[in-house]
Design a protein around this nucleic acid. Structure first.
Lengths: 168, 168
DNA sequence: TGCTTTTATCTCAACGTTGAGATTATCAAG
DNA sequence: CTTGATAATCTCAACGTTGAGATAAAAGCA
């Protein structure tokens, strides 16, 4: 059996035999990259069905899983999202206009603001996340559960080694 | 041992116990997504050191690994790149301005154009790809080789099941 | 030959992200 | 207090991508 990445590596071995022994990370990282794109494309469609961009969906779920009172600072959302500060500001602006979240000034530190899920934001998040999980399950419908677990465990060890250990 | 994704799943189990049994795909897909971002960020920096955007680097390597005569149609690059047509046109425009590639009309079919690596494009690609592999190796420096192989194999099976089997 | 359909590429406005810098507030030291 | 340093958020122009539509050529078919 072979996939697109096997074909790509085969091309490199032919064209760049001088680096053939350095291609071993490619079989992992190229697959991670391709799988991420396939899954993200599917997830975007699932989010769009609920009227939100994928980046907005990310903010919604981060707030919901943080638990009561469903409010985090812009800085916390920034760290959780792996994007830059301008992107977070824009996302919050758009989501505020859609009445999904609201900006609340923090009494303690007036530099910080908290982003809080509105009731409407809660409803959208619950529905969208449920659909999101159904979509995930559909993608993996025919796969062996044990393989999924083992592969996920391997990725966890990689992420730990790369320092991706906390969500703050 | 635990990583950021374990923490995220822990939050969901608490906040949405009603979907706790549907979270199993998350431990895989969330890791794929996070790892892809970490690796891509690193790869972008490696490409930038050679004066090219990551998307441009993708076009360069696709052309180089295709072998002589190092020329593909815009359509072939489109399929290989997993982006939309406008993005490919823009990338080629920018790369042509940088003298990395040149557009060549195909004698047979005047609708198609071939994108061909220039000599300069060849040089940049060789150097950038060598650095790219060194960067990959650095990221995996402390990892067990067998784990990397097994995890990559798991991802291959997933990609095959999702139909990502050819590069055309 | 003419007509329609299909194929390949490009156009362009809307969109989201980047990232350096600006703004405003807090903290630490004297 | 006042000054300087630090911290949190926002601003904004530049950038790359999206995706529907336009353009143009080729292929299929009467």
């Amino acid at each position: 059996m072979s996939d697109a990445v096997d074909a790509i590596i085969g091309q490199w071995v032919k064209e760049r035999p001088d680096v053939a022994q350095d291609l071993w990370p490619v079989q992992l990282f190229a697959r991670v990259q391709r799988l991420a794109r396939v899954v993200e494309k599917s997830a975007k469609a699932a989010a769009a069905a609920h009227g939100v961009e994928y980046g907005e969906f990310d903010v919604l779920t981060t707030l919901q899983r943080s638990g009561p009172p469903y409010a985090l600072t812009a800085g916390a959302l920034l760290k959780a999202s792996m994007v830059t500060s301008g992107a977070i500001t824009n996302r919050i602006d758009r989501m505020e206009a859609k009445n999904l979240v609201e900006r609340v000034r923090d009494g303690e530190d007036r530099r910080t603001i908290k982003i809080r899920l509105t009731d409407h934001g809660h409803d959208v998040t619950r529905a969208a996340f449920t659909d999101h999980l159904a979509n995930y399950a559909r993608l993996l419908a025919d796969m062996d559960r044990d393989l999924i677990t083992k592969t996920g465990d391997g990725l966890r060890q990689l992420l730990e080694a790369l320092g991706d250990t906390g969500i703050e």
